[in-house]
Write a protein that binds this DNA or RNA. Structure first.
Length: 437
RNA sequence: UCCUCGAUAGCUCAAUGGUAGAGCACCCGGCUGUUAACCGGGUGGUUGUAGGUUCGAGUCCUACUCGAGGAGCCA
């Protein structure tokens, strides 16, 4: 598939290695300049990488040399030069400059190469994403999203997108953003799952990938008000099939990032051995076993309580790989979760907790396929029956055992990149009281 | 909503209750291999807001505003 675009006048910085000895033009932005009177070093970025252009006064002449002096940080420019291997230079190559075209001289740039506080950077997120670290994160996010899609494509899943505007709460628990739908109440979707169950009954194995909205006043490093979720739903999958698919998916994505994003992981100073050591299958423990584990770790915990973030961290830190916690108490889980036939006090749900304290990245499980039980649960949870008639239809017309899950992209990116805050995993994070820019 | 912490130059931070400072950025000068280059000089302040204590407040007290981290909820 690799093609060489010889007919193009310009080249990406990441491809300069193909042109050693040749003259090429790159187009980008000035990242930094160092000047020594008669020699200048122009560090240029183009989004694909960075390269140093070397300009010697004697060689390029006074006019070009002085032109370079007018350039400020982040000025846009086209730089022409001969590609050389140079171990002293970033990336191992440099450009012996022969030509420079100034596209636009930048005003004084607010983000310097020194330290800045997160508040200052967040206000300038549109510029912050130009920095090498943010660039690396967004490239890894892109690779992760492609990997998920490829994984599902290879396994004959159909991409079936779920609606973003919905008439009712999916689970009736969380706070939703409300809309006026031409006089009707509507909400931004908090999950595509119920719709996924319908498309799975139509297409067999499906997934959707889109934005999700939660209006809770969450203010932690793990929460966004708008985030992206991969949700899959599979007809004829039980709880074990479900976990097997998930671990293969997560493993596949990690291998893809290790294979294709080495440079980006290095930029982030990620300890890649933590990712390389992850093997299949992932450990599986029941909720009850997890409670025992917490008690042994000295935590006060009652069977029947839900795990908080500190508990997830303790459980996750006992394993080198992500760990499935399955068979949660029925009372703390959503109305559609199928009870375990061997022990109806628990459901056939399983969450995947990432290691290194990153907590829950997947929530999933087997769904109730029995009409009468589902009707009973809807009543118990005091949900508006009318809004769920179509969902009950799925049990009236050819009900099958089926399972699915939802994976949070941002938490997955934060974990794989080793970030301490989710706000860096998306180009423009939406957080409590924060939606600028 | 609750708990904890914070706010000083454009940025990152100093300053026993006693003249508000440094590095970076920016401007000027110097330097032919720099790696967040370096060296010399210069510009730059209503110390978040309002009030109080004091001879004197960036510093102590009160309220408020804004922000950060955490809890709950969850991906």
């Amino acid at each position: 598939m690799e093609r060489k675009w010889h007919f193009l006048a310009t080249e990406l910085i990441k491809n300069l290695a193909r042109h050693v000895g040749g003259e090429v033009t790159i187009q980008g932005w000035l990242y930094n300049v160092r000047s020594s009177g008669k020699i200048r070093f122009l560090i240029v970025r183009d989004g694909s990488g960075m390269v140093q252009g070397v300009m010697v006064k004697q060689e390029v002449g006074d006019e070009l040399f002085e032109l370079a002096n007018t350039l400020t940080q982040e000025s846009s420019l086209k730089l022409t030069g001969v590609v050389r291997e140079e171990p002293r230079s970033i990336g191992g190559f440099e450009l012996q400059v022969t030509g420079l075209e100034v596209v636009s001289v930048a005003e004084e740039y607010p983000i310097t190469h020194k330290e800045h506080g997160v508040d200052f950077l967040a206000e300038r997120r549109h510029l912050w994403i130009r920095t090498p670290r943010q660039n690396a994160i967004l490239r890894i996010r892109s690779e992760i999203e492609h990997a998920f899609r490829d994984f599902f494509y290879q396994r004959d899943f159909v991409l079936a997108d779920s609606p973003i505007i919905t008439p009712a709460a999916c689970e009736g628990t969380t706070t939703l953003f409300e809309l006026d739908y031409h006089g009707e109440k509507a909400f931004l979707s908090q999950s595509g799952q119920l719709y996924n169950e319908a498309t799975a009954a139509a297409l067999g194995r499906i997934y959707c990938f889109g934005p999700t909205f939660r209006a809770e006043k969450s203010k932690t490093r793990r929460h966004l008000l708008e985030f992206w979720m991969i949700e899959a739903e599979m007809a004829y999958f039980d709880v074990d099939d479900n976990m097997k698919l998930q671990e293969e998916m997560v493993f596949y994505v990690i291998q893809r990032v290790l294979e294709r994003c080495r440079q980006e992981l290095k930029t982030l100073e990620r300890d890649v051995s933590k990712l390389e050591n992850i093997k299949l299958p992932f450990p599986r423990i029941s909720y009850t076993e997890a409670v025992e584990l917490l008690k042994k770790a000295g935590q006060e915990f009652e069977w029947g309580d839900d795990f908080g973030a500190p508990h997830e961290t303790i459980i996750g830190s006992h394993f080198d790989a992500p760990v499935f916690v399955h068979r949660y108490p029925t009372v703390i889980k959503a109305f559609y979760m199928k009870p375990d036939p061997n022990d109806p006090k628990v459901v056939l749900g399983a969450d995947l907790l990432a290691p290194e304290g990153y907590g829950e990245v997947i929530g999933g499980g087997q769904r109730i396929d029995d009409l009468a039980l589902l009707e009973k649960r809807i009543d118990e949870h005091q949900l508006p029956r009318e809004a769920f008639e179509w969902y009950l239809d799925l049990r009236r017309y050819g009900s099958v055992p089926h399972s699915g899950f939802g994976l949070g992209i941002e938490r997955t990116v934060a974990w794989i990149c080793g970030l301490d805050h989710i706000r860096e995993t998306i180009p423009f994070p939406r957080m409590l009281h924060k939606m600028y820019p």
